Computed example of a mutant assay.
Amino acid sequence: MAGPEPLRPAGLPGGRERPGRQRAAEPHPTARLNLASALLASARYAEAEAVLRGLVTEDPKAADAWYMLGLAQRSQRQDDQARISLKVAADLGNSKARDALK
């Protein structure tokens, strides 16, 4: 006699949620900003950029995220995109972004 069908992760073929369990929510924006900061400090610029793009998409008024996105882009020699991100951050009141644009 066969036992119950094993659970597979949701999102995979044949996957399903465990009864009574919810999917984990996205980490808090502050935690994601801290992650992006650590990635930048570790010279993992593309990964930081991906985290920061998610943050600015969710909250277009997140000045610190725009500033850090500009830094990640600048570090990857994406100068035009970096200038745009830093300008958005400066327009939102981030003084470090204003200084970076000088």
Score class of each variant (00 low, 15 high):
Arg23Cys: 00
His28Tyr: 04
Asn94Ala: 06
Leu33Val: 12
Arg53His: 06
Pro27Glu: 07
Gln73Cys: 02
Pro6Leu: 02
Gly3Ile: 10
Thr30Ser: 05
Ala2His: 14
Ser37Thr: 13
Arg77Ile: 10
Val56Met: 06
Gly3Leu: 08
Asp79Val: 09
Pro29Lys: 14
Pro60Ile: 02
Lys87Thr: 13
Pro19Gly: 08
Ala2Asn: 03
Asp64Glu: 15
Ala46Ser: 10
Ala36Ile: 06
Arg18Val: 12
Leu71Pro: 11
Ser42Gly: 12
Asp99Pro: 07
Trp66Phe: 06
Asp64Arg: 13
Gly93Tyr: 10
Gly15Arg: 05
Gln73Leu: 13
Arg21Ser: 11
Arg32Val: 12
Ser75Tyr: 00
Pro19Met: 03
Lys61Ser: 04
Tyr67Lys: 06
Asn34Asp: 14
Leu40Pro: 11
Gly14Lys: 00
Ala100Trp: 06
Ala50Leu: 15
Ala72Ile: 06
Asp91Thr: 07
Ala89Asn: 02
Tyr45Trp: 08
Ala2Tyr: 14
Arg21Val: 04
Pro9Leu: 10
Ala90Asp: 11
Lys87Cys: 01
Arg44Trp: 05
Gly3Ser: 15
Leu71Lys: 08
Ser75Arg: 03
Tyr45Lys: 04
Ala10Arg: 07
Lys96Cys: 07
Ala63Asp: 11
Arg83Met: 14
Met68Phe: 07
Arg98Ala: 13
Gly15His: 11
Asp91Ser: 02
Glu58Ile: 05
Glu26Tyr: 08
Pro13His: 11
Asp91Lys: 11
Gly14His: 01
Asp79Ile: 13
Arg77Met: 12
Gly20His: 15
Arg16Ser: 06
Val88Thr: 14
Gly11His: 04
Ala89Thr: 00
Trp66Val: 07
Ala36Lys: 03
Thr30Asn: 12
Asp79Ala: 14
Ala24Asp: 04
Met1Lys: 11
Asp64Thr: 12
Leu40Asn: 15
Asp79Glu: 14
Gly14Ser: 02
Ala65Arg: 02
Pro9Val: 04
